[in-house]
Design a protein around this nucleic acid. Structure first.
Lengths: 112, 112
DNA sequence: CGGTATCCCAGTTGATACTG
DNA sequence: CAGTATCAACTGGGATACCG
């Protein structure tokens, strides 16, 4: 189970999964959708998701070639708990930011 | 939001949070509960959770001193989506393992 | 007991360049 | 377009030692 959570919890997986929600996307589109991800990391993340069976890869023999990635049913099912988490994060973002500011301020005032 | 998700998605946070579910725990207990975590990492994780307001720290002036950590209401609320995710991981662990094996086997057979 | 301070290596990532 | 290859830089985190 650690293995599964580790994959989902890595820096890019969740973002990629969410970028694939709804529609299948092409490589280049994903690259533009996920902020700051590099080709290298996008490729790696997609391969790992494919390996885990969360994403499927479809190559179209056009020129230039286009490759589409889409969520498998398993990948789709993962989106539910992931959305719940994202919603939680979104709902409590401000609170957490405030808590951080208070904490950091507390350190700053007692130390210098 | 990335900042929030990054914290939750790191190697230890989720494990520590879940170890704190239900009861408050002392430092040493957490150290033993979370497999393979070091003092250094446990301390760091707890500080970050405290900073984010998910965990509160309570010092008891006994000898030797004891320190208890407990989930704040915010931390408690985080547990819900986290449990949903853990349940998903648990439910699909076998499927994913199988997918990985199939994928790795496919690579192994076509390459050597 | 519950930390903090250092050191340091291994693995991850970003940049860059090249290819089918 | 959709990758792969290579290499340097950065960083997480383990090991270890010491402190209140």
């Amino acid at each position: 189970m650690r293995n599964v959570l580790d994959r989902i919890g890595d820096k890019w997986t969740m973002l990629v999964l969410m970028a694939l929600a709804g529609e299948p996307r092409r490589f280049g589109v994903l690259l533009r959708m996920v902020p700051d991800i590099s080709k290298r990391m996008l490729t790696q993340t997609l391969r790992l998701l494919e390996r885990d069976g969360l994403v499927t890869r479809h190559v179209f023999a056009t020129t230039p070639p286009s490759v589409e990635y889409r969520l498998s049913p398993l990948g789709l099912s993962a989106l539910e708990p992931l959305h719940a988490l994202a919603q939680w994060a979104d709902a409590n973002f401000a609170t957490i930011r405030a808590s951080r500011a208070r904490y950091d301020d507390g350190l700053a005032r007692t130390d210098p």
